[in-house]
Design a protein around this nucleic acid. Structure first.
Lengths: 267, 267
DNA sequence: CGGTTAATTGAGATAGATCAACATATGTGG
DNA sequence: CCACATATGTTGATCTATCTCAATTAACCG
């Protein structure tokens, strides 16, 4: 526990040690065996949330044929920062964290992904992933060769435009996160985080109020630029002031949304 | 000076006070009078750096016809966060800062733009600008109605793809900035900042070594999530250790690039 | 060249980090 | 199904990097 940071850096080196190219993580937890692959996308519960919604009918069937669904355990690597960006992904179910590491193991989580979120095109620098990706909980992730998606983008300008919109939205979110990291207090950061999680849950068609918090305190800390201890203390503080209620099963009830909103902007 | 933050917040409110829509800043410092508008883009010194490079011949002439060049003083507003995003911009000459404010005046600069940099499509949330933009030094900024650029994007997929690449690069930069803001020390932040400025100068065809620093210490502080005092002290520290030399005229010589690189990653 | 603004330097305060128990889940094999 | 083992979360007591407040100095500009 004391050696946490060093462990993280060493672990990273270990993972990279084997050779220049690592086996694809798709093999690590097994692939779903599916009879009719087309069904995959046609009946996908999160299609309306993702770029796949730009396709219909035969195009969607062709798309489905190129997609592989990976079933991953919790804490499973998807790809590493610096690897050639040969595939793109879509989260079908579960949660993913994207992060960057410093040499000494300090970690910054640059984003969390949930059902319907797209991954692997934006945030790529010079053909390589700009961050690492891991599952937070057991997840189903759709995987598609980059070459394949490039073809679809070329063929369906609507999809490309949608991707541009996604990139613009991600950028706006990134800028908000910069404001949070550069200028907000711990209390403001946590309040902002909880509200944002709630908003995102709503966009996915889930209830706004009991927010599910699938990630650990350490993940939250590394996302908010804090330590676990500060996250824990601040959580307790918000609880004590009755802005939130900690529920069993990694969920949080927002007891006073207005007050939490106020707390997120600096009282 | 003591009331700096409050001033900033009040100033912002004042600027917004007049009415629902503010006069376009293009009128504030005058427009360049140009005989042959087509010449504007055809002979533009930074065309190869910007999205305009996707167009040639007649298409470029049509593009030029739709472009207005604004000549702005230093510290001139370009647009405000929350305004409808009715135009896109390209920096022809000068420097621009993009920033977000909190209600009490705390400011986070989310990016600096230089010659050739594009502005106004990515980072837009729901049709409104996600941040405010101001010039840092006297600048020439190309302005184009959003509806016009949409037409070109539709007509020239090459331009749209280029925009997607730009957005991806911006996102990668934003993620790196999150790592800086969330996990780096003041020393690491400043070293990273100076190196990045140097890299960007090179990409614009300028020398890597005496880096021009057009922005104030306050701007640097608000970009790095620090205070002016800390920026100043850290600058002095790097100078004392002979990693950099402060030159007259807002320039900095990188005396020991390797050491500065090391300092940017945590010694 | 004086006046104004920006940058630097110093002294002291503090939010959040670090170090250290302790508590509470989570899981595992008997 | 319980008792132990391990990971995760909470709480407490310090410590410190950076902020804040306060001068002082340097740069810029008409």
């Amino acid at each position: 526990m004391v050696e946490d940071k060093v462990d993280r850096a060493e672990f990273r080196l270990l993972r990279r040690a084997p050779g220049p190219d690592v086996t694809l993580p798709s093999c690590q937890s097994g692939m779903l065996a599916v009879g009719n692959k087309a069904e995959l996308c046609m009946t996908c519960a999160v299609r309306h949330l993702s770029i796949c919604s730009a396709l219909e009918g035969p195009a969607l069937e062709r798309f489905a044929a190129a997609v592989h669904i990976m079933s991953l355990d919790a804490q499973a690597p998807i790809f590493d920062e610096g690897e050639p960006a040969t595939a793109v992904f879509n989260v079908k179910e579960g949660a993913v964290r994207l992060y960057k590491l410093l040499a000494d193991g300090r970690r910054q989580i640059v984003g969390f992904l949930f059902e319907g979120d797209f991954l692997g095109l934006s945030g790529v620098r010079g053909g390589n992933y700009a961050y690492s990706a891991e599952t937070v909980v057991p997840s189903h992730i759709c995987r598609l060769q980059r070459s394949a998606i490039d073809g679809f983008l070329h063929e369906f300008p609507k999809m490309e435009r949608q991707l541009l919109d996604i990139a613009a939205a991600e950028l706006a979110a990134a800028e908000e996160q910069m404001l949070l990291l550069g200028r907000k207090t711990a209390r403001e950061r946590l309040a902002s985080f909880l509200l944002k999680l709630s908003e995102r849950a709503v966009r996915r068609g889930k209830p706004a109020d009991p927010v599910s918090i699938p990630m650990s305190r350490t993940d939250i800390a590394d996302f908010l630029g804090l330590t676990t201890e500060t996250v824990s203390r601040t959580m307790t503080q918000l609880k004590r002031e009755r802005l939130i209620t900690l529920l069993p099963g990694a969920a949080i009830a927002i007891s006073d949304r207005d007050a939490l909103q106020a707390a997120s902007e600096g009282d």
